[in-house]
Design a protein around this nucleic acid. Sequence first.
DNA 1: GTAGGGTTAG
Length: 668
Amino acid sequence: MASTLGVLEALLRNPGAIATKLEVKQLLKALLKRPGAITSASEAKQLHAQILKHNPSSPLYTSTAICVYSNFKLLNQSLLLFKTLQSPPSLAYKSIIKCYAVNGRFVESLASFVDMRASGNTPDHSVFPSVLKACAFLLDLRLGEAVHGCIVFETMTTRDIISWNTVIAGNAQNGLHEDALAMVREMGGAGLKPDIFTLSAILPIFAQYVDVDKGREIHGYVIRYGFDKDLYVASSLINMYSRCARVEDSIRVFKITRQRDTISWNSVIAGCVQNGMFDEGLRLFRQMLKDNVIPGSVSFSSIMPACAHLTTLNLGKQLHGYIMRCGFDDNVFISSSLVDMYAKCGHIRTAGWIFGGIKGRDMVSWTAMIMGCALHGYAEDAISLFEQMKLEGIRPNHVAITAILTACSHAGMIDEGRRYFDRMTEEYGIRPGLEHYAAMADLYSRKGKLNDAYQLISTMTTPTGTIWSLLLSACRVHKNVDLAEKVASKIFEVDPENIGARVLLSNIYANDGRWKEAAKVRMTMRNMGIRKNPACSWIEVKNKIHTFIADDKSHPLHDEINIALCELQEKMELAGYVADTSEVLHDVDDEQKKYLLYGHSERRAIAFGIMSTPAGTTIRVIKNIRICVDCHTAIKLISKIVGREIVVRDNSRFHHFRDGECSCGEYW
DNA sequence: GTAGGGTTAG
């Protein structure tokens, strides 16, 4: 069945490749069992076209198409088909009732439910949540009671394992987790043992609750009864472990599962990506393709965040091409992940273009775009998107609020940020969490309002090392040694191993000429056995990533890069550039300091990029730490001298250098 | 005979 569906997926992507009527018939039959295999509206339309072409009058196929359309909330399409049915089968009724309900058409939803009963079809748990919701909305208590009676009647008559499973799955999928689990116990009491259907229905509950102990218990049961051969159970287990941050366990389950399909691959790939194991996720994705498993839309939305986090634009673009050829680009999960990927890889305009084309944007799509604008310093765009989202009736959640606060922070918009922060509880019913305090502390810090930041953080019950570190880094920029010492001691209280904080403190001392104290901090680090990561920058040229580490001479074009940098230097000095050596934290003379600045990794990466790409090409460089003040000034001039746009992503945001200016407006 | 399991922003 898995391979049949694989062929179906391929077929839907390439309708021209259809061979025989018989094949299509078999495929439609396979699909009848699993309408969820269709994951985008365009696939749904192609499916519909196939049905019209081969079996226009089959009520079962028509019902399947209705079911698929209703999964995408496409009420008009569903209705058009529904009206062609003389006596709609149960599936058609169930789908239309659900579709009415998700579109807020409760009266019609209830009317269809009544029709369904009158036609002699028995409703099951897949429709009761919609109907009850409609009753609650319309305050139709009498009908609500009748529906409830119908549910009780339904569960009372047929109490075999299948009806139990239906009821348990219905509850589990509709958020009634405790009821579902109670039913499993009750079923056990009635002498019925959970089977593969029961288990795959309740495992997602433990995944959501992040209850690895219960999950493990189930796993033990699965092994005792030999259910671990079942693909559905295996995928649920893989998912449960990865949601509980036990990605090694989920990989182990995956590896011992002999039979694999697209979904079990997706589970393990998503598990890796969600737990930050991006390279392993990509390795598994490639392995899946090698094993001739056809990726579905979920495969792409699972792997795309890996490209976003690793900023592997080329791979992201390749996947995007593949996605378009598959017709998956109208899937909201995929398009949101593309918006995020392009934004994180520096292509904010492409991100905006994709965002503009998304039909049925959800909160995640909006937030991805808002956060993209925030990272690029386009706060006004972020704010207008945020307001537009609210106008479209989407209530922001805590992530969306974090995004808008981040936008304000990266543009130094204190008043706006403060207003969103102060009103978030009242307006959106969300109390400030760690991430909101962090964004506000960052906003004050970047703007140089160090005391305000200190006050704000102090009001928190348990401030983390990470939040204090934001302030410490601002103390470095704004050269406030006294506050830095105070903040650093707070950090070491809660997080003695914090490498970044020790490096910062040492640099703050060095910047103030207090070489002895700086050396002492370095000594402590050495004694603790911690080393900082070296500063490095990288650039992708012709599909190859070139990495530059500060003062490293190993690049094959090292000498040529030096010559190019010297030539640039002369032109920059003619344009008025004076090296700012205040940020060179080595106890050496000024001439030496100037020389050290040229060794900064981002400059070498940019010089290399200019040498190896055609005139006018945008240069994109990524750096693992913050750009230094002198490089920032230098890159502005370079962008003007060579007439190129230079995009640099440091550890917290993007800088777009163009014609002697930077988009960050000096906030970074 | 159970329309079962996997996905996007932080």
